[in-house]
Design a protein around this nucleic acid. Structure first.
Lengths: 217, 217
DNA sequence: AATATTTTTTAGACCAATCTAAATTTTATA
DNA sequence: TATAAAATTTAGATTGGTCTAAAAAATATT
């Protein structure tokens, strides 16, 4: 049985090891969690005692199989709740995170599985991230960054890399969301900005924006 | 901002002061919470510092106005979640309590209010207890105990006093639930047991059962 | 009313999770 | 490769919530 705190650490380690490969550094977790590195070291030891991470002094951590499972159970709940909030409780995709951070810790298998059934077994959350099923298996789209989409080849927005409210609201204002068809009309060599067609409207976006949007070609 | 623990104490004090009038004793809270009296005393002091209870050494506590409000906000969430679990997630009325105990601590006004809207502003939870509205106002039925229902006067089951799984499952087996019409056919002088008609079936129940069922005459 | 019992509080300790400050190890750089 | 800088760990303290054991107050009983 995990505590709130250990669950948060496991999730943070899981996400960190998704982006960077190899072991996860103390400071990177400290930043994510908002704690001092010394506290993180303490927690690494605890998780290591529980065999949820592999930890060697000064060498960072990596999740064990059991640690991955525990993390995925939390991710599963987080993404199911996010889906529920958007589909039934009028939340916008930029508002769900903070509440889902709380709901993901509720312990009840029946609750999780019934929620999944109620939502009709969704495979992706409102940000396009895949939802682990009951067996903790998930498959993500074969997706690329918008920066990598060739000129004049149609793609569909299937997710975002940056989940911050600021970015999501920015996309809302430009009417870009999950499912929006996108076509790159022109790529500016000078600053890598793009002229794109998103849905029915034509607009310009910066490189920074483009490298935070996932596309299924 | 309350902690999980202070919220549980406030709720326990609220419920205790509903049944007994006057102040609430240290031991009664200790029993409800499952903590030692000395811990309860400590917590009474903390809550008193926060002006959520009125506390005088050896005299027990009572909630302040602010304390009542805080408790009602938790009760509101608890009962809304119980309603949701039963109406949409296939939970039985004897299964909801443990999960609602966790969900009641989620902090998000928007979540609570949207859940209420989604459920179409229910006034009572699956056990017949009234749900405080957004303004924390609730009205309970004008209800009596089944022991007080006169012979051959029809009433409707509108709630239960004992919310334990054991009791609720017992009622399920006898097909008694919220809304079941009830008629007392005979009251046994010897042991106060009752012959009743519940819905379509006739059955015998003990005094102890009868004094845990609320009836609207 | 005096004494016994029960309830409540105090004092001191513990645990999980955190912190700061200092020490140590690793990594980068001159 | 020696040294400086950065990252990490250790040691010791703090906080919230809990505990046990002992003391104090309230209540019940003779």
């Amino acid at each position: 049985m995990q505590t709130l705190s250990t669950e948060n650490y496991l999730k943070a380690i899981y996400h960190a090891s998704q982006s960077a490969s190899g072991t996860v550094a103390t400071t990177s977790i400290a930043n994510k969690i908002g704690a001092k590195p010394s506290s993180v070291t303490d927690m690494f030891k605890k998780l290591s005692d529980q065999k949820l991470v592999k930890y060697e002094k000064y060498q960072g951590v990596s999740l064990t199989n059991e640690g991955v499972k525990t993390a995925l159970r939390i991710v599963r709940k987080h993404r199911l709740w996010e889906s529920f909030l958007v589909s039934h409780l009028n939340f916008n995709w930029d508002e769900v995170h903070q509440v889902a951070e709380q709901l993901e810790h509720i312990q009840s298998e029946k609750l999780t599985n019934e929620l999944e059934r109620f939502l009709d077994y969704p495979t992706h959350d409102p940000h396009g991230d895949p939802i682990p099923n009951r067996a903790l298996f998930m498959k993500s789209y074969n997706k690329i960054l918008l920066t990598e989409l060739p000129l004049n080849k149609e793609g569909v927005c299937v997710g975002v890399k940056d989940n911050s409210s600021d970015f999501l609201r920015y996309l809302d204002r430009r009417q870009i969301g999950i499912g929006t068809p996108i076509l790159v009309l022109h790529r500016e060599d000078f600053d890598q900005s793009l002229h794109i067609q998103a849905g029915n409207s034509t607009l310009m976006i910066t490189q920074k924006t483009a490298e935070n949007i996932y596309i299924k070609p």
